[in-house]
């Protein structure tokens, strides 16, 4: 039996719905949301991913440094 892993994705058109759900739509529109790792403002043009970290939400920009830092962070988190 082949193992299958899920990659969760969201289309940019549906991002509002998710932001609404996590109550960050206004902050996102008003450019108050920052990348967790480089602190740059995250918007629709540079967003890579959003992660749920114990009920607080991490935004990751699409720079490779931040993506790798995020993978390292989540790997360490999974080890615990």
């Amino acid at each position: 039996m082949t193992e299958k892993s899920t990659i969760n994705t969201i289309h940019e058109r549906d991002l509002d719905k998710l932001l609404n759900k996590i109550e960050l739509k206004e902050d996102f529109i008003n450019k108050k949301v920052k990348c967790r790792f480089c602190e740059k403002i995250v918007d629709i043009n540079n967003l890579y991913a959003i992660s749920n970290d114990n009920g607080s939400y991490i935004f990751i920009c699409d720079s490779i440094e931040c993506i790798n830092k995020f993978f390292e962070y989540s790997d360490n988190k999974n080890k615990k």
Partner: peptide, 12 residues
Amino acid sequence: FNDLETVILMRD
């Protein structure tokens, strides 16, 4: 949107 879950953005 469960704990430790990550959603990546896809564009058109």
